[in-house]
């Protein structure tokens, strides 16, 4: 039963991923549409970060926020993303001790 659930999850995840592979070349894109599509990564990242980050540690939204601020501060130094990840994990770990 668990494998069936996993297969079901795989299908409903796969289909929305691949449909644009078949439809996007039929649309003649106006400049405004290009601008919109180019901005999607940044809008998506914003929506993925907040407010979800407040739920990292249950009932302690400020811990997630603090971890995020540390990650942002490290990222602004133009170092590899992995340093942000490690910095944030360490921060959250220390705050939950």
């Amino acid at each position: 039963m668990t494998m069936l659930t996993i297969l079901g999850m795989a299908i409903v995840t796969m289909v929305p991923r691949f449909i644009p592979a078949f439809i996007m070349d039929r649309l003649a894109l106006k400049p405004w549409l290009n601008k919109w599509l180019n901005a999607i990564p940044f809008a998506a990242l914003g929506a993925l970060i907040f407010p979800g980050i407040m739920t990292v540690i249950e009932d302690a939204p400020w811990i997630g926020i603090t971890g995020g601020l540390v990650a942002a501060a490290i990222a602004l130094l133009n170092v590899n993303v992995i340093f942000s990840v490690v910095g944030a994990i360490v921060t959250v770990y220390l705050l939950t001790i």
């Binding site: 940044f42 993925l48 980050i53 990650a71 993303v81 944030a88 994990i89």
Partner: peptide
């Protein structure tokens, strides 16, 4: 458990790490 809980921040940190340089 405490360590695996702390790892929950990793995805968010990656999103932030990807976004921040472009914002700068």
């Amino acid at each position: 458990k405490q360590l695996s809980d702390s790892m929950g921040i990793a995805l968010y940190a990656m999103f932030i790490g990807l976004l921040a340089p472009s914002v700068k």
